[in-house]
């Protein structure tokens, strides 16, 4: 089974410093987008079950970090395909999806299964898997929280707001997974060291002849919600009295 696990290298949103209403994004370290780790894990589990090869298709949106790539590969991917350059920075899922698809095609990969995370930690627009499927003319199932491989098809559970949907998708297909699908493994130091030797290709998105609608970012601000930040420490009974006072003030209790 030829499997592509899509992932995005993003700024770690939990570590972005804020200055006034500015987000100092480029001072944050990078990480593999959270739910993409579930996508990699699921790809590796399927390979372990039925054999085949996993290509980690990594979109590099900011600085590249070799250690992070090695750690992701060490989860069990056989090779890396990195897509980088100005064209995959900023918010334009159309452009990112097109770059990924063109890079996969240029490498001569004809996937039986493409697995993505439901949405990325930086943008969470949840658009990429759907767009990848359209550009590859493949069927798609999004927000999959469980899946089972059958003969030439997948049986998946889609986790939706009001319940779930069990769907059969013929292969080849594109799947987006939610974080409920598995628990991503943590590779050992030895696995990480070995992963450094794995085959990799680097594609500059400017070489792919992309054609996309422009999306212009005209402003980026920190969302700051002012809070009182009053600290209540010490005697528990006193603390409880303070909580009760606040609840009274807000009209929650008479």
């Amino acid at each position: 089974m030829e499997i592509v696990a899509c992932a995005k290298l993003v700024y770690d949103e939990t570590q972005i410093p804020v200055e006034g209403d500015r987000l100092l994004v480029d001072q944050a370290p990078v990480k593999v987008s959270d739910i993409d780790r579930n996508a990699i894990e699921e790809a590796v589990r399927i390979k372990e079950e039925v054999g085949g090869r996993v290509t980690l298709a990594l979109v590099v949106t900011g600085p590249f970090d070799e250690a992070i790539l090695k750690e992701a590969l060490a989860m069990g991917a056989d090779r890396a395909l990195m897509v980088q350059g100005d064209e995959v920075r900023g918010h334009n899922p159309y452009r990112t999806a097109q770059a990924l698809v063109k890079a996969i095609e240029r490498e001569g990969i004809r996937p039986d299964l493409v697995i993505c995370g439901e949405g990325s930690s930086d943008q969470y627009s949840c658009a990429l898997p759907a767009m990848v499927a359209e550009f590859m003319s493949l069927p798609v199932a999004t927000f999959v929280g469980r899946m089972e491989l059958g003969e030439g098809k997948l049986r998946v559970e889609r986790y939706l707001e009001g319940g779930y949907e069990i769907v059969e998708v013929p292969l080849p297909a594109v799947i987006s997974v939610t974080s409920e699908i598995n628990e991503p493994r943590i590779p050992t130091v030895l696995q990480i060291m070995r992963a450094g030797k794995r085959e990799r290709s680097v594609v500059d998105a400017s070489q792919l002849g992309l054609d996309y609608p422009e999306m212009e970012e005209i402003e980026m601000k920190a969302y700051v919600r002012e809070r009182l930040r009053k600290r209540i420490e010490g005697d528990v009974n006193e603390a409880v009295r303070r909580i009760v006072e606040v609840l009274e003030e807000k009209g929650v209790i008479p």
């Binding site: 899922p93 159309y94 999806a97 943008q123 969470y124 627009s125 949840c126 658009a127 990429l128 898997p129 759907a130 767009m131 499927a133 359209e134 550009f135 798609v140 999004t142 927000f143 889609r158 986790y159 939706l160 707001e161 609608p213 422009e214 999306m215």
Partner: peptide, 23 residues
């Protein structure tokens, strides 16, 4: 902005070559 319509919107935008804004 439901999960289903996020898929539908993104697919339609890709198919028609249009910009797509999520939520």
């Amino acid at each position: 902005p439901t999960r289903d319509f996020k898929e539908v919107g993104a697919r339609l935008a890709a198919r028609r070559g249009l910009p797509y804004l999520s939520e």
